[in-house]
Simulated assay, not measured.
Amino acid sequence: MNSHLQNQSQSHENHALKPRKKRLDGDQHRLLETSFNANQKLKAEDKIKLARQIGLPPRQVEIWYQNRRAKNKTNVVEHGYRNVQLELGNVMAENIRLEKHVSMLKHELNNVQQMILFGSTASASILDSVSGSSNEQGNSSSPGNLICNWRDAGNDGIFRVEELYTCLTGSGTPLWPLT
């Protein structure tokens, strides 16, 4: 126990013998920053010249430069991280938009499959619900009022892909006579 107290006393004395480092004043800091912005690595002669100019030991200038490079590297990494986070947010938003679009396309595909499976009797009502039209609205060729009728397809009731798409999306003019 006595040796422990003696070791503490010796380390305390050694600590008291070391001179305390002084903080840099504003002019010294500005000069170091200006020098660092011009060149992030110092040659030995430039380090000695800068140390004399600001009144510091060359080793302290060297350590300041090492710390400043480390700080700069950390800032670059943090900036990159923020950019990655922003990009991730953009990608996630685009993913949500695409998932909604896929869901809408699956719904349209399901309607087309039902139309094909159920044949001509149910297809007119399915197409009317998809295109947002009804037979009471008349035979208008505007996209919002497009009416598709399964019986008008010809060729044993088989639609071409372009005709189905036009009918489902309600775009363009009818590709066959409407009834």
Rank of each mutant, 00 (worst) to 15 (best):
M1I: 04
S3Y: 11
S3F: 10
S3C: 02
H4M: 04
H4F: 07
H4E: 06
N7W: 03
Q8W: 06
S9V: 11
S9M: 10
S11K: 13
N14P: 00
P19C: 01
P19F: 00
K21E: 14
D25F: 01
G26R: 15
G26Y: 12
Q28H: 03
R30I: 07
L32D: 11
S35K: 12
S35V: 03
F36D: 05
Q40D: 07
K41D: 02
A44E: 15
A44Y: 09
E45W: 10
E45G: 03
E45V: 13
D46K: 06
K49F: 11
K49C: 02
K49N: 09
L50E: 07
Q53V: 02
I54P: 06
G55C: 08
L56C: 04
P57D: 13
P58M: 09
R59S: 14
Q60H: 12
I63C: 02
I63Q: 10
Y65P: 02
Q66N: 09
R69N: 15
A70C: 04
K71R: 03
K71N: 02
E78T: 06
H79Y: 10
Y81D: 01
R82Y: 08
Q85W: 05
L86E: 11
L88E: 12
G89K: 14
N90T: 12
V91Q: 12
V91H: 13
M92V: 06
M92G: 00
A93N: 12
E94V: 05
I96Q: 10
L98M: 12
K100D: 14
K100C: 01
V102K: 10
M104K: 09
L105V: 10
L105M: 15
K106S: 09
H107F: 05
H107E: 08
N111T: 04
Q114N: 06
L117R: 10
S120M: 05
T121W: 06
T121A: 11
T121D: 13
T121C: 07
S123T: 14
S123N: 13
L127G: 11
S129H: 08
V130Q: 05
V130P: 01
V130K: 00
S134H: 14
E136I: 11
Q137V: 03
G138T: 03
S141R: 07
L146V: 03
I147N: 04
I147M: 04
I147W: 01
W150P: 00
R151F: 12
A153M: 09
E162G: 04
L164D: 04
Y165M: 06
T166V: 01
G170R: 09
S171H: 06
S171T: 14
G172H: 08
T173M: 07
T173L: 12
P174C: 05
